[in-house]
Design a protein around this nucleic acid. Structure first.
Length: 466
RNA sequence: GGUGGGAUGGCCGAGCGGUUAGGUAGCGGACUGCAAAUCCGCUUACAGCGGUUCAACUCCGCUUCCCACCUCCA
């Protein structure tokens, strides 16, 4: 399995540092609002990543943090006059519900920042002791970027040739150097009741320290893999490296992976453009989690993904075609047991694709090749004699990574209502009598009731109209 | 100003120095009482201008346009 490492900027083999287990830290949500589909591109990318690792016979220990204390959560809680924990709980619960709708496998650990304040304070103390952090006149504690020689190695930025403060007010804080970042933020009146006591006075942790403290707690001081959206590469991940490596003197993370942004109709998603969608927005429009997942994972994670509703419509049709094929294979009982050459070929192509830096579009091409070959073989049933069980096994194997074929939590069992069933019975009788006019009329009636009738040699079948 | 990534057929979206990506849409045919589904075939795209090469969508240069990051947005 090969992946692109943002640190080396090369495709490298991903091999566990220990125990045949990939220790994976994935930057999670700030729980101040419902997550949007851009966020979910990152989470589905990480889900596919962990699935491919497992597909290759390795184990995964994934940690995803929940940032439940920062400017936005504090502002939101205080604006509503509720406790921070009560405010964030709504969005934590919503987040997990959304992940489930997208068939994202749960991480092994979901640590919340507010449950790890002591660990963060301990890490800051360590950095103070090493002389790479200082408390300024504003009582906040900052990391001294100049004291960490490797600063910029992830983002590949040469800070001697940067114009800083172009986008952000540089005079906002009382820092020695504009690049220095907050490890501990001193309490301010606007924080209201939110705050923790520390050796530096009341305050709260900086954002970056949370990930360094929690990742090292659950994964060790050096671990395999750390991921997030490309926007996290700098400064967040750069700062995590600085904090962790300055504290431990050891390499922090071996491999970094970042996914590109999602755009909507070619533009950055933003509320002012009116193209800002939460998962809930799309579900309300009638799209399913399965269809959304299909769209999100059907582009290479390092390429910008241009999201459009037409893509969801295409996804619906593509999935229906896969479903139809899988259903037919499931019903097909071939006498021939053993191997299936075309299925094996498709699985080989699929495996090569996912192991080539998670090339999901290519993997899907292998899946559709299997669909096409299978349909062709089924159409030529008498002479085919392939092993249907083998084909089904390959579909299942592929779905270990894709998670869109056997999407059980949304492929609800189809129950035909009694009134539709009686119409079907009447239609069957009409067809028996070759009364085509009545047969067609009943088909229309059934269609009006929301069901699609198909005729075949074996009689009629119905499925809910999409 | 600095850095990085892009511009592929109606739409989405891979890829590689010469061999079909794939999906969806469209067209024609087979099958079907008619549909639907399925199968077969077709429609042969790589921003523009130069250059390298026997051969470039794929390498190099320039131009145009887009996106991201440059200190707390996945």
């Amino acid at each position: 399995m090969n992946v692109f490492n943002s640190l080396s900027r090369r495709v490298e083999a991903l091999e566990p540092l220990a125990d045949n287990t990939i220790r994976l830290y994935t930057c999670g949500p700030t729980v101040y609002n419902f997550a949007h589909i851009g966020n979910f591109r990152a989470y589905t990318f990480e889900d596919v990543l962990r699935r491919v690792i497992q597909f290759n016979g390795m184990k995964v220990r994934q940690v995803m943090n929940l940032t439940d204390v920062d400017d936005k959560t504090i502002r939101g809680a205080n604006a509503q006059g509720v406790a921070l924990t009560a405010y964030t709980k709504t969005y934590k619960d919503a987040f997990f519900a959304d992940l489930k709708r997208l068939n994202v496998q749960p991480a092994e650990v979901y640590p919340a920042a507010t449950d790890h304040i002591p660990e963060m304070i301990a890490l800051v103390e360590k950095l103070m002791a090493k002389g790479v952090a200082y408390q300024s006149d504003d009582k906040s504690v900052y990391f001294k970027v100049r004291e960490f020689p490797g600063y910029g190695k992830l983002a590949h930025i040469d800070f001697d040739h940067q114009q800083t403060g172009l986008r952000c007010a540089a005079d906002e804080y009382d820092k020695e150097n504009v690049g220095d970042f907050a490890l501990w933020k001193a309490w301010e009146p606007s924080d209201g009741p939110v705050g923790w006591d520390s050796p530096w006075g009341r305050g709260r942790p900086g954002w970056h320290i949370e990930c360094s403290a929690m990742s090292m707690k659950y994964l060790g001081e050096t671990f395999d893999l750390h991921t997030g959206g490309i926007d996290n590469l700098f400064p967040h991940h750069e700062n995590e490296i600085a904090q962790a490596e300055a504290a431990t003197g050891k390499p922090f993370v071996k491999t970094w992976m970042h996914c590109a942004h999602l755009r909507v109709n070619g533009e950055k998603m933003s509320k002012s453009l009116g193209n800002f969608f939460t998962l809930r927005d799309l579900l309300d429009k009638g799209y399913t989690g399965r269809e959304i997942r299909y769209v999100l994972i059907n582009a290479h994670y390092r390429s910008g993904l241009n999201f459009a509703f037409s893509a969801l419509d295409d996804a619906r049709k593509s999935l229906a075609r896969i479903d139809a094929c899988v259903e037919k294979v499931g019903k097909w009982e071939s006498g021939k047991a053993g191997t299936c050459a075309f299925a094996q070929k498709c699985l080989d192509d699929f495996t090569a694709a996912v192991n080539d830096d998670l090339n999901l579009p290519k993997a899907f091409a292998a899946l559709f090749e299997l669909v096409r070959e299978t349909n062709a073989a089924l159409a030529a049933a008498e002479t085919a004699g392939f092993d249907a069980g083998e084909v089904l096994r390959v579909f299942r194997r592929m779905d270990e990574v894709l998670g869109v074929i056997f999407f059980e939590n949304e492929k609800k069992a189809v129950e035909v209502p009694a009134d539709v069933q009686s119409l079907l019975d009447a239609r069957a009788a009409a067809r028996q009598a070759k009364n085509w006019a009545e047969s067609d009329r009943l088909r229309d009636v059934i269609a009006a009731a929301g069901w699609l009738v198909k005729d075949s040699k074996d009689g009629q079948s119905v499925s809910p109209k999409q």
